[in-house]
């Protein structure tokens, strides 16, 4: 498998480290425990399209987001991770 680094082009799998599901949203520090349990342990784990973090450890060292099919390993997109950052949620009103 080769991964398309947005900075370095197609590079061998060996050069990358895996960072897991890139769609997870870190809850606010004071979010209810349920949200933290979901964030830390639970995953959608789809069979099909999956957005995931990789780090080009043996190359430019940048973190990237790759969209890959977990059944066929077909890659349909890659972006610098900082372009995919979603704003952190505002502080929750609920007391944990």
């Amino acid at each position: 498998m080769r991964l398309p680094c947005p900075w370095c082009g197609d590079r061998d799998l060996n050069e990358f480290g895996y960072g897991g599901d890139a769609t997870l949203q870190r809850p606010a520090d004071d979010a209810p425990m349920k949200e933290w349990v979901d964030y830390v342990f639970f995953r959608d784990n789809p069979r099909g399209s999956h957005r995931e973090h990789w780090q080009h450890i043996q190359g430019c060292r940048a973190w990237i987001v790759v969209e890959r099919d977990t059944l066929t390993h077909e890659i349909t997109g890659s972006w610098p991770a900082n372009e995919m950052v979603v704003a952190a949620p505002a502080k929750s009103e609920v007391t944990p």
């Binding site: 799998l13 784990n45 999956h50 995931e52 890959r68 059944l71």
Partner: peptide
């Protein structure tokens, strides 16, 4: 890495 492919690299 996440995979359901039943074949490795």
């Amino acid at each position: 890495y996440n995979s359901y492919a039943q074949r490795g690299n």
